[in-house]
Every structure is written in structure tokens, then in C-alpha cells.
Simulated assay, not measured.
Amino acid sequence: MSKGEHPCELQKPRQVARKFLARPQHEGMGAVVRRSIGRFELRYFDPFLVLDEFYVTGTAGFPDHPHRGFETVTYMLQFFHSWQGGMMHEDFTGHKGTIKAGDLQWMTAGKGIVHSEMPAGQGTHKGLQLWVNLSSQNKMIEPNYQEMQSKDIATVARDGVEVRVIAGESMGVKSPIRTRTPTMYLDFTLSPSSRLRQPVPSTWNSFVYVLEGEGVFGREGSPPVGPHNLLLLGHGDGLEVWNKSGKPLRFVVVGGEPLGEPVSQLGPFVMNTEEEIDRTIQDYEMYVNGFEMARYWRSEAMVGQDL
């Protein structure tokens, strides 16, 4: 067995079906994101609505804004060369804290949340935010948080391959995160000359997002792919990856069970029909049906700007 090769046999490895380079764009208040899912070429990849690699500096960020009907997964990144700050989070229920480098926040917006995400301290703060759609039966559940510090995220290293198990399972380790829409989220680092075989349920949609280094994905003879590229994977029971470069390769593998339901979206509101979106807008404007606490709430970050 070669370095990094794990004893799982894939009957039909997934190939790269499409590739997108995520280019920078402005979002929120002065923030920059590289959006790969949720842009005009790829509006939706069931059950995933948005994938952003975000960068915030100084006073830039994502001030008070609402959500309904899905989950946001915020994962602050630690890069090979340095640690990158964190994001301060607060919402209208009084929940607040700091998501530091390597930490995870899995937020279920459900029937409604209004929150703020702003940088903690100086420097540039980098992370990934994934939006996971909820089924019609879960869209109006009560909001909820699952949070994990970096030290508590299960990490396994073997034969040149390291994985942080954000959600799902890899290399015999399972994450405690509950995913209402069945989801896997794995952060891999492959040392030079290592190889990975990662099973993915054959009925799920899955993708790769490259963070650092260059890797060969799906087929050994394929050209290497570098940072900020999203790779949509075709059908199969898993993924094969090779690091043939002289530097470490880091990427995330994300997969989810498709909901197969209609999607109606208006910005931060995601429901099944236009009528439900209309009711959501009315609920938000009238401060009812989950948005009651939004009437008088402003984040500390926004109040501080008024002083």
C-alpha cells in the first residue's frame, strides 16, 4: 500500500464533472467573498445553496441580517503559514461569541434568525461559509446552534493524510454534529506523494473546494487543480485524490443527500414556493412568526458605529 492509500475499495470513483474558479466579489459591508455555489453559473447544487470563501478586514463584515429556511455552516480557516483571527457572532436571542481560527459554527436558522458576523480584532480573517438547505418539514423549526472549538473537532492523521471531520465520517471517526439534511464535511490535508480514497454515499451530491496547494482529483492522469477551484463530482461511491506536488495540498470534501424539492429563494430567505417567500417577507417586516425579537434589536457592532 502506497503512502496515504487507505484500505477502502471504491467500485466506481467519482470523476470531476465540472470545474469553477471562484472569483472575488463584494458582499455585506466591505467584505470580499469568493462564491462558487450560489452564483449565476451554479445557482443551486441540491442541497447546497451557497459556498463562500470569505475575507474580512478592519470594519468590514456582515452586519445585522436575517435568515429563514436553511442552515449556515461557518468554518474559520487556519492556513499552513499562519493563524487567521476570528469572527464575532451575535443574534437577537442574545446568543453571541467568537468563532476563532479552526472553529466551527453550525447554525440552523429555521423559522427565523437575525444576526451579525463581524471580524474579531485586527488583520484579515478568512473562512468558509456553506448554506445547507432544509427540507420543507424542517424549514420552520426553532433556531439552533451547534458549535465546536478547533481542539474538539475530531482529527485523524495516517500515511500522509490528515482529516478534520466537521460532519459525517472519515478514516473511522465520526463527527457529533447533527445534520438535519444528511451531510458530510471533511477538511483534508495531503502531504507530498500521498493518496486519498474517501467513500461518499452513491446517491449524494458532492463537491471539492481547494484551499491550498495543487492536487489531482478523480482520475490520476488529470491535470492538477489549484486554490479557489470548486470541483463538482459525478456519480460514484467515492473520491480519489493524489498530491503529486512538493507542497501540502488542502481541500474540503462536502456531500449531501439531495432534497429533491422546489426552491424559491430571495436573498437570505429560502422556501419552497413564491407564496412562502411572500409570507416570509411579511413576517420579517411585521416582526411576527419567528421575527418578533427583531423589532428592537441591533447588534453591539452596529450600535457601536452610532456612538
Score class of each variant (00 low, 15 high):
residue 17 A to G: 06
residue 82 S to L: 07
residue 99 I to D: 02
residue 160 G to N: 06
residue 167 A to C: 08
residue 33 V to C: 06
residue 190 L to D: 00
residue 133 N to L: 09
residue 90 E to R: 11
residue 131 W to K: 02
residue 176 P to D: 06
residue 102 G to E: 03
residue 191 S to P: 01
residue 221 G to I: 08
residue 174 K to F: 01
residue 139 K to Q: 14
residue 49 L to H: 05
residue 5 E to C: 07
residue 182 P to W: 10
residue 30 G to T: 03
residue 58 G to V: 12
residue 306 D to K: 08
residue 299 S to I: 09
residue 121 G to M: 09
residue 167 A to E: 00
residue 277 I to T: 09
residue 206 S to L: 08
residue 48 F to W: 12
residue 265 Q to V: 03
residue 110 G to Q: 11
residue 155 T to D: 05
residue 7 P to R: 12
residue 208 V to T: 10
residue 64 D to A: 13
residue 187 D to N: 13
residue 241 V to W: 01
residue 24 P to H: 14
residue 118 M to V: 13
residue 157 A to R: 13
residue 31 A to K: 06
residue 94 G to Q: 11
residue 139 K to L: 09
residue 38 G to Y: 01
residue 162 E to G: 00
residue 213 G to C: 04
residue 185 Y to S: 00
residue 202 S to Y: 14
residue 145 Y to M: 10
residue 295 R to P: 00
residue 35 R to V: 03
residue 168 G to A: 07
residue 196 L to E: 02
residue 304 G to V: 03
residue 36 S to H: 06
residue 46 D to T: 04
residue 181 T to Y: 11
residue 230 L to G: 07
residue 75 Y to V: 02
residue 208 V to W: 05
residue 14 R to W: 09
residue 274 E to D: 14
residue 84 Q to S: 15
residue 94 G to W: 07
residue 163 V to S: 06
residue 227 P to Y: 01
residue 184 M to S: 14
residue 160 G to P: 05
residue 219 R to W: 05
residue 232 L to I: 10
residue 295 R to Y: 01
residue 299 S to Y: 08
